[in-house]
Deep mutational scan, measured.
Amino acid sequence: MEQGTVKWFNAEKGFGFIERENGDDVFVHFSAIQGDGFKSLDEGQAVTFDVEEGQRGPQAANVQKA
Score class of each variant (00 low, 15 high):
residue 22 N to I: 12
residue 44 G to H: 07
residue 65 K to D: 08
residue 62 N to G: 05
residue 17 F to C: 04
residue 47 V to I: 06
residue 30 F to I: 07
residue 32 A to L: 03
residue 37 G to I: 06
residue 16 G to M: 01
residue 42 D to G: 12
residue 52 E to P: 03
residue 14 G to P: 00
residue 23 G to F: 08
residue 29 H to E: 03
residue 49 F to R: 00
residue 5 T to E: 05
residue 16 G to L: 01
residue 26 V to S: 02
residue 11 A to L: 11
residue 57 G to F: 05
residue 2 E to F: 15
residue 45 Q to L: 07
residue 31 S to F: 05
residue 16 G to I: 01
residue 11 A to T: 14
residue 12 E to V: 14
residue 48 T to P: 00
residue 23 G to P: 02
residue 52 E to T: 11
residue 4 G to P: 01
residue 20 R to T: 07
residue 49 F to M: 05
residue 11 A to N: 11
residue 7 K to L: 06
residue 17 F to R: 04
residue 39 K to R: 12
residue 66 A to P: 09
residue 50 D to T: 15
residue 23 G to L: 09
residue 58 P to A: 10
residue 66 A to I: 13
residue 15 F to V: 06
residue 39 K to I: 06
residue 66 A to Y: 12
residue 2 E to A: 11
residue 24 D to N: 15
residue 22 N to R: 12
residue 8 W to Y: 09
residue 53 E to H: 14
residue 56 R to L: 15
residue 60 A to W: 01
residue 18 I to S: 00
residue 34 Q to I: 12
residue 65 K to V: 14
residue 50 D to M: 15
residue 29 H to I: 04
residue 5 T to W: 13
residue 18 I to W: 00
residue 59 Q to R: 09
residue 19 E to Q: 13
residue 49 F to E: 00
residue 7 K to V: 05
residue 23 G to R: 09
residue 16 G to K: 00
residue 31 S to A: 08
residue 31 S to C: 05
residue 58 P to Y: 10
residue 32 A to I: 03
residue 52 E to C: 08
residue 8 W to R: 04
residue 46 A to G: 08
residue 64 Q to L: 10
residue 22 N to L: 11
residue 57 G to Q: 04
residue 28 V to R: 00
residue 18 I to N: 00
residue 48 T to N: 08
residue 25 D to V: 13
residue 43 E to L: 13
residue 17 F to N: 02
residue 39 K to C: 04
residue 51 V to T: 07
residue 19 E to D: 07
residue 34 Q to S: 11
residue 61 A to S: 12
residue 63 V to R: 00
residue 62 N to F: 08
residue 23 G to V: 05
residue 34 Q to L: 11
residue 4 G to N: 01
residue 12 E to S: 13
residue 26 V to F: 05
residue 65 K to G: 10
residue 22 N to Q: 12
residue 40 S to Y: 13
residue 38 F to E: 09
residue 4 G to C: 02
residue 40 S to E: 07
residue 12 E to F: 14
residue 7 K to D: 01
residue 18 I to Y: 00
residue 57 G to W: 05
residue 38 F to V: 09
residue 10 N to F: 07
residue 57 G to N: 04
residue 44 G to W: 05
residue 54 G to D: 06
residue 21 E to C: 09
residue 26 V to E: 02
residue 5 T to M: 11
residue 38 F to T: 07
residue 53 E to N: 13
residue 7 K to S: 05
residue 49 F to Y: 07
residue 3 Q to K: 15
residue 53 E to M: 13
residue 40 S to W: 11
residue 15 F to G: 02
residue 2 E to C: 09
residue 1 M to E: 10
residue 34 Q to P: 06
residue 1 M to R: 15
residue 59 Q to K: 09
residue 59 Q to I: 10
residue 50 D to E: 13
residue 47 V to Y: 03
residue 15 F to D: 01
residue 64 Q to T: 09
residue 8 W to Q: 03
residue 13 K to T: 06
residue 54 G to P: 04
residue 10 N to C: 08
residue 9 F to E: 01
residue 41 L to D: 02
residue 51 V to H: 04
residue 12 E to C: 10
residue 66 A to L: 15
residue 50 D to L: 14
residue 48 T to G: 05
residue 14 G to T: 03
residue 16 G to V: 01
residue 38 F to K: 09
residue 47 V to P: 00
residue 13 K to M: 12
residue 38 F to H: 09
residue 15 F to I: 10
residue 35 G to S: 10
residue 35 G to I: 10
residue 20 R to F: 04
residue 26 V to K: 01
residue 60 A to Y: 00
residue 42 D to L: 12
residue 45 Q to G: 07
residue 29 H to Q: 03
residue 64 Q to V: 12
residue 22 N to F: 13
residue 62 N to E: 03
residue 23 G to I: 04
residue 65 K to I: 14
residue 43 E to G: 14
residue 18 I to H: 00
residue 42 D to M: 14
residue 65 K to N: 10
residue 4 G to I: 00
residue 64 Q to M: 11
residue 63 V to F: 00
residue 64 Q to G: 09
residue 50 D to H: 13
residue 13 K to P: 02
residue 52 E to I: 15
residue 6 V to N: 01
residue 56 R to Q: 11
residue 47 V to Q: 00
residue 35 G to H: 09
residue 38 F to W: 15
residue 41 L to Q: 02
residue 54 G to E: 05
residue 32 A to T: 04
residue 4 G to S: 02
residue 42 D to P: 09
residue 59 Q to E: 09
residue 42 D to Q: 14
residue 14 G to E: 02
residue 59 Q to A: 08
residue 22 N to Y: 13
residue 8 W to A: 03
residue 21 E to A: 14
residue 11 A to I: 11
residue 29 H to K: 03
residue 45 Q to N: 08
residue 63 V to Y: 00
residue 64 Q to C: 08
residue 39 K to L: 11
residue 32 A to E: 05
residue 43 E to Q: 15
residue 49 F to N: 00
residue 9 F to C: 03
residue 13 K to V: 08
residue 7 K to N: 03
residue 34 Q to Y: 10
residue 35 G to Y: 08
residue 9 F to N: 00
residue 10 N to A: 08
residue 57 G to I: 04
residue 3 Q to T: 15
residue 20 R to Y: 07
residue 42 D to A: 10
